[in-house]
Write a protein that binds this DNA or RNA. Structure first.
Length: 557
DNA sequence: CGTCAAGGCCAA
DNA sequence: TTGGCCTTGACG
């Protein structure tokens, strides 16, 4: 019997069984390894018979494969690590990550030994994964995870103590895996700055040269740079010819459907500057056979080949670590929680404008319409960004600002709209349990930008249908759409809330100037538009259904 | 040449 | 279908 000494006593983050080694990006047991492999290799699709929130542990892991697979994904197992060509042996691209992770574990174990708590014999796993009662997936206990993450009164229960911990606990392991970006990396980057005289309109007006890039970053760092996965799935499906596909399409789960849209569809939604793989992807899709489509899409579609359109869109996603950087930058200088939240929004808004400007459809709008669209949608994009950063472990649950006050991530996300923080926390947990991934983030962001209420702009309508089409070929489900809609409604309310501060709490409102001028400009302009225009504006943003959320009560202490 | 994460095999 | 054990093969 050979026990691998490094993993002795560790429990599988999916089911709690004994860990046998690294499998598909995660230390797991042998059974979850096999289950994950079979699921991906055979492109199985499961459907949970209840509400996709089943308990998964050693005794009941066989009961609901849907929730088990979902938990595999949530905890960080990577479908890309299952080989399409089924080659045995050898090494994969995660090798360096496994090595580094082992080193981290040993280091942390060593520290733990020297600072061992009385009565406690914490295993190595407990330093890396949240303790079982804090696991956010598959919890069927009375404990609501969002309380742990987002309730300001439970600061002491948080398990993410430091940014380093948050990094290690990223469900995607992106932190440990990715050499390109770590906390220290983005802390070292030059301070983001912009001429305060520049308004949103000025930012939008500059089409040839991006003022954000011009002012803020050295040429070696692009705002929209997308981290490479440890295993590049784009390479993956290019290397494995699509003609292998029909062997998978013979199962009864699939019916032949329309061919994959050509890359030009995706290209029009993303910048013209990212053309690295476009040629090859075009070739792939032009030779694609009839593609299978699940008639009743499940939450996870296991398919390497669907992803080219979404993958192309994803190239312009911002770096998830930027939000964490904005948090870190702002918290030391702000003495007011609202000022802190708005400062983070201010920094992110600059990125959002820069990102929107790179979108070929967005720039088809006139400057006025671009402005109108952004006024309606920027906050949703911002909240989507923070939601994504939260899900991926880039953020702590709370941030201490200069006056010593603890501010929750939810408070920051919602611009201080605290009555909705629990609802937002609930959304974060739900999305996390659904395995919210890069594709979903990409779709959420584009859906947020091209806000549904602005569909009177033909460009917006066109963009939305393209996003939905591409997303539906990968992951889109009614449940995702519903959760997105809830996020959007919360963001609307948050804008309304922020504007209400100008009259209900002028002291706070005044503190927001002048460093957060862009956000205030957005809020003020859309508020003034509300009185004269028929376009969607703050006054016309639909009120959230009372049964879905807490009543709107603004607490401006 | 040992290690160890891939895939494969097969009894339950 | 599951999961424990076996085989493979790139890498250090």
């Amino acid at each position: 019997m050979v026990l691998r000494p490094n993993h002795e006593g560790e429990s599988c983050p999916v089911c709690g069984d004994r860990v046998s080694g690294y499998h598909y990006g995660l230390l797991t047991c042998e059974s979850c390894k096999g289950f994950f492999k079979r699921t991906v290799q055979n492109k199985k699709q499961y459907q949970c018979s209840t509400d996709a929130n089943c308990q998964v542990d050693r005794t009941c892991r066989k009961r609901c494969p849907s929730c088990r697979f979902q938990k595999c994904i949530t905890m960080g197992m990577k479908m890309e690590a299952v080989r399409a060509d089924r080659m045995r042996g050898g090494r994969n691209k995660f090798g360096s990550f496994y090595k580094r992770d082992r080193a981290h574990r040993m280091q942390r174990n060593a520290m733990r030994v020297t600072t061992v708590l009385p009565g406690g014999t914490p295993g190595p796993q407990s330093s890396f994964y949240p303790p079982p009662e804090h696991q956010v997936s598959s919890s069927t206990t009375d404990q609501t995870p969002q309380n742990i993450y987002f309730d300001q009164t439970k600061v002491k229960t948080e398990f993410i103590k430091t940014e380093y911990d948050a990094h290690l606990q990223s469900p995607t392991l992106s932190s440990s895996t990715n050499q390109q970006l770590s906390v220290s990396d983005f802390i070292m980057r030059p301070t983001y700055s912009i001429d305060p005289q520049e308004s949103i309109a000025a930012l939008l007006g500059n089409t040839n040269e991006d003022p954000l890039l011009r002012h803020s970053f050295p040429s070696t760092y692009q705002i929209s740079e997308v981290k490479q996965e440890p295993f590049d799935y784009t390479e993956h499906f290019i290397h494995h010819p699509i003609h292998e596909y029909p062997i998978y399409a013979t199962t009864t789960n699939y019916v032949p459907m329309m061919p994959m849209p050509t890359v030009s569809t995706a290209q029009s939604l993303v910048t013209s500057t990212s053309s690295t793989n476009s040629g090859r992807i075009t070739d792939t899709s032009s030779t694609s056979p009839l593609l299978p489509l699940c008639p009743t899409p499940t939450e996870t579609t296991v398919d390497h080949f669907y992803n080219s359109t979404m993958a192309e869109m994803c190239k312009e996603l911002p770096d998830g670590g930027m939000i964490a950087k904005f948090m870190a930058d702002a918290r030391s200088s702000k003495h007011d929680s609202h000022a802190f939240a708005v400062q983070v929004a201010e920094e992110n808004l600059k990125l959002i404008v820069a990102w929107a400007k790179k979108n070929n459809l967005f720039t088809k709008l006139t400057l006025d319409d671009q402005m109108n669209l952004l006024q309606t949608s920027w906050a949703t994009v911002h909240i989507v960004d923070i939601t994504n950063a939260m899900i991926n472990g880039h953020l702590s649950s709370h941030y201490k600002i200069a006056n010593g006050e603890e501010v929750s991530a939810g408070f920051i996300a919602l611009l201080g709209n605290s009555p909705f923080v629990p609802a937002w926390g609930d959304l974060v947990v739900r999305l996390q349990n659904m395995g919210f991934n890069k594709f979903d983030y990409c779709a959420f962001r584009l859906m947020a930008l091209f806000d549904q209420s602005m569909e009177n702009y033909q460009v917006v309508s066109e963009a939305r249908s393209r996003v939905l089409q591409a997303w539906s070929e990968v992951r889109c489900t009614p449940r995702f759409l519903d959760l997105f809609e809830q996020l959007r409604q919360i963001s609307y309310d948050s804008i309304r809330y922020l504007w209400s501060l100008s009259s209900s709490c002028p002291r706070i409102w005044e503190q927001l100037n002048p460093s957060t001028s862009l956000v205030l400009e957005m809020i003020k302009t859309s508020a003034s538009r509300a009185t004269v225009s028929t376009t969607t504006s703050i006054a016309q943003i639909p009120v959230i259904h009372q049964t879905a959320y807490a009543p709107v009560v603004y607490m401006t202490t």
